[in-house]
């Protein structure tokens, strides 16, 4: 656990962060422009992606996934588009600009844990090197967490409890 001191509000046994998801209409929509590549590119900054990265539909379906093809640095990539499920969005976050007052307290943007939304998206194209995309890809399976989390955190009603008690033969008073 990271115990770096950030501001006086921080409890001893944890860290506090914030994410500001502003609902400004000017937010950039990057749907169809988010790609997860099977490599680590040691570069941060703007890049003319659409001039160089030209995914093509192959017309082939594997396990119900429509396969796309592209290349990057000479490697053949095969991928597919995942549309985020209803009720979910993807966000590009950036460090929140720190107001002048807090700067004087020695808090730099670098170690702050306060974020704001820079762009949002509704789909991700994820790519495999050589392999066709499959429902058993770890990245694809990550989405399973969403319904699982829903089921785990859904409020339980009294009738659910009664139902469960009859299911398991346990009587709840």
């Amino acid at each position: 656990m990271n115990r770096e001191k950030e501001s006086s509000e921080i409890p001893q046994n944890g860290i506090i962060g914030s994410i500001d998801l502003k609902s400004d209409e000017s937010i950039v929509d990057l749907t169809d422009k988010i790609h997860q590549l099977p490599c680590c590119i040691k570069y941060n900054g703007p890049c003319s992606v659409s001039h160089y990265f030209k995914p093509k539909q192959t017309g082939v379906d594997v396990e119900g996934l429509s396969v796309e093809e592209a290349c990057f640095r000479g490697r053949k990539l095969q991928g597919t588009k995942i549309t985020l499920p209803q009720g979910y969005s993807g966000f590009v976050l950036g460090k929140k600009k720190i107001a002048g007052k807090r700067k004087s307290e020695g808090v730099s943007e670098e170690n702050s844990n306060h974020w704001e939304m820079r762009a949002s998206f509704q789909s991700i194209d994820y790519w495999n090197h050589d392999d066709v995309p499959s429902q058993s890809d770890a990245f694809y399976r990550c989405l399973h967490w969403l319904p699982a989390a829903n089921a785990l955190h859904k409020p339980v009603s009294a009738s659910d409890l009664t139902h469960a008690s009859t299911l398991f033969g346990v009587k709840i008073d």
């Binding site: 490599c39 590119i41 990265f53 990057f72 640095r73």
Partner: peptide, 30 residues
Amino acid sequence: SVFGFPTLVRFSWGTCTPYFKKLAEVLWES
């Protein structure tokens, strides 16, 4: 810096190696 070269180039050629050293490094799982 990111894409290396247009896809006309054979990225697997030794000729490209000195160029790649000056561009953004790319690490592959393979």
